[in-house]
Computed example of a mutant assay.
Amino acid sequence: MTTIRSARTVATRTVSRAALVLAIISIMPPIATAGETEAKTLLKAMSDYLAEQKAISFQYDTNLEVVTKDHQKLLLASSGKIEMGRPDKIRATRHGGFANVAITFDGKTLTLLGKDANLYTQVEVPGTIDHLVDELRDTLHRPLPAADLLLPNVYDELMRDVVDVKDLGSGVIGGTECDHLAFRAKDLDWQIWIAQGEHPYPCRYVITASQVDQGPQYSIQISDWKTGTDVVADDFGFNNATKAKQVDLKDLVDIDELPNHFSVGGTK
């Protein structure tokens, strides 16, 4: 009984301290305009750096929050790798608890491979990577991880509809010191951590659906960042090494971060 009472006392004190911190944060004066200017400058520098890179590869880990009808938050985690050659070649993998997927694009043909089922589908989508990103999101409903960060003008894409900007100082992601920036748009909040130094690549990107009940988040953390000659991928065509069976897109199930048995707006 004493142990339980002690644990409750510690918990109460911890919650009280947290509430005090939140109260202090809520009454702090707004960050100066200079902080907003600096944040925009840092984001623009990242955007310019990314646009200059002709070849990029990185590992990533994602977390996708979903909220049930009874307000329970569930976290779906996955990992993968992206290799990209501008302007029109990309290879991406994603492995999570519900899907093990590979995506290849050679400038003409998009191939989606479900590794566990050993099934694949192909779609003709000639064009650049930014065109592919739009097609995957709007037409095929199979968005790429970190898609916002792969476009040729990241700054303009991210700053669309932004109404508030904050420079939160520095943070450390995976051992790399980063500039931590926070932005508020009309329908969502987002944060980004940008590596300090001469290679200002994104280390973590978090999106919060502020207008959705419970504010679910999507986050991606980037590691093993490489550019230029350090990127080894040169063949972005589909190599059917496992003799996978070709099927229609509708028959290629469980290749999204949100698995098929999770029903949006439903009861599951």
Rank of each mutant, 00 (worst) to 15 (best):
A7V: 07
N239V: 09
Q122A: 14
D167E: 05
F236G: 11
D70T: 14
S16W: 10
K245H: 10
I90C: 12
L158E: 09
V67P: 07
L144V: 08
R94M: 13
T111W: 13
D134F: 07
D234K: 11
A92Y: 02
L112M: 14
P152F: 09
L76A: 09
M84H: 06
D189T: 01
S170I: 08
V101W: 03
V253C: 03
L113E: 14
W190N: 06
V206H: 12
L249H: 11
H131I: 02
F236D: 08
K69V: 09
A32Y: 01
P200K: 10
D254W: 00
T62S: 15
D148S: 13
T93G: 12
L42T: 05
P126K: 08
T3R: 12
Q59Y: 05
R184N: 07
H95G: 09
T2I: 05
D164I: 00
G169I: 01
P126R: 06
L132N: 11
I222K: 05
F183K: 00
G265P: 01
G169F: 02
L50T: 01
H261M: 09
S57N: 10
T104R: 09
M1H: 13
A195K: 07
H141F: 14
L181F: 10
D251L: 03
T62A: 12
L188H: 13
T208F: 08
S219Y: 00
H180C: 07
G169N: 03
Y218L: 11
K69R: 15
L136H: 09
G215A: 12
S223Q: 06
V232G: 10
W193H: 05
G175H: 10
L258P: 04
V125W: 09
R160Q: 14
L158P: 09
D254R: 00
L140I: 06
V101H: 05
A34Q: 06
S78I: 00
A117L: 07
D235L: 02
V172E: 15
D230Y: 03
M1E: 15
P143E: 06
D156P: 02
E124T: 07
A117F: 05
N240P: 04
D248C: 03
A195R: 08
G35Q: 06
P29V: 05
D106G: 12
S78W: 01
D138E: 14
Y201A: 13
K108H: 10
Q196V: 05
S47Q: 09
A34P: 00
V212R: 13
K54T: 02
D164G: 08
T242W: 11
Y201T: 08
A147S: 15
L76K: 03
T229R: 05
Q217G: 02
Q72K: 09
D164P: 00
P216T: 03
F183P: 00
A45G: 10
